[in-house]
Design a protein around this nucleic acid. Sequence first.
DNA 1: TTTTCTGCAAACCATTTGCAGTTAG
DNA 2: CTAACTGCAAATGGTTTGCAGAAAA
Lengths: 168, 168
Amino acid sequence: MPASPKRPRAAEPRSKETDLAARVARISSRLKDQGLKRSGVRDIVVEEFLREGTHVSIEQLLERVRARVPGIGYSTVYRTLRLLVEKGYAIARDFGGAQTLFEPADKRHHDHVVCVGCGQVREFENRAIEALQEKTARRLGFRITSHRLELYGLCAACAAAGRGPPAR
Amino acid sequence: MPASPKRPRAAEPRSKETDLAARVARISSRLKDQGLKRSGVRDIVVEEFLREGTHVSIEQLLERVRARVPGIGYSTVYRTLRLLVEKGYAIARDFGGAQTLFEPADKRHHDHVVCVGCGQVREFENRAIEALQEKTARRLGFRITSHRLELYGLCAACAAAGRGPPAR
DNA sequence: TTTTCTGCAAACCATTTGCAGTTAG
DNA sequence: CTAACTGCAAATGGTTTGCAGAAAA
């Protein structure tokens, strides 16, 4: 018989796309459980949002979605993202720029380093810092529910190029 | 002779007001050195801003200044605060609320704990956290120029009262 | 059918800016 | 006089909302 494609022994390796579709379906179905109606347009927004994976602006997202749903308007993207944030599927981040950036909520907790030269955002995680935050807050009588830690500076490339913050 | 008021032996204790006036004068004079013109209205805005000392919104500040300069408009306060920020006399903070809050820049560096129940903002300083931030950033190839650390949670009073974040 | 979703245009809201008159140097 | 300052009203720009028609349950 002709050589059939080898498959890795453990689990069928779901393709990125299959995986994406599954995540979209899961969210869509949970929303339906809450009385909302399924919508093709919304599914596409959610899919493109999840595909992006990190720190998208409404505008960037709109652009990507427009490629598939030419007539879609700003409001739908705004409304969908607000819904995702409300339901806990997305996190809204404000890094000081004009617009809000969004990222999927199903990632590990992390903080951000932002390059003031090129605007790139990198993530990091530091248990020691978190622990100190907790301790500090407790000392002040606060019970912390969330925090925000952002480091601003120049990435290696920008520092080498002598680039600085965008002209003011 | 009648008992004259005792004065502490070291230095004449400048009153809060005298001190305030001096700080205003110093800023005003430095601004003049840079080609700007002195202005009574601006001096008052600066004075009320410094008197407040922490985390004022434009609106709060406008209210205080209006008590002394009834006809003053929003734009003047906005322009003055922007000037103070540009020249390094004020720091603009965005704690997630609608409006920007301002605080004098001549304070020690510090971070903030914000109560999501009552909105109060407390300051703290933690060298250990700062050091870890530096180290973390360096590991990622970044040279940090500034950072932002905010802890959000409930203060003791709000926790006791079972208060939560403002109704959504 | 009934309710949610969607696109469009208008509304919002904090902040900025253009303009014409006022004031400091 | 000249350039900076001020109040006002209009403009900005990201985000939200009201409305009427389209689509899902």
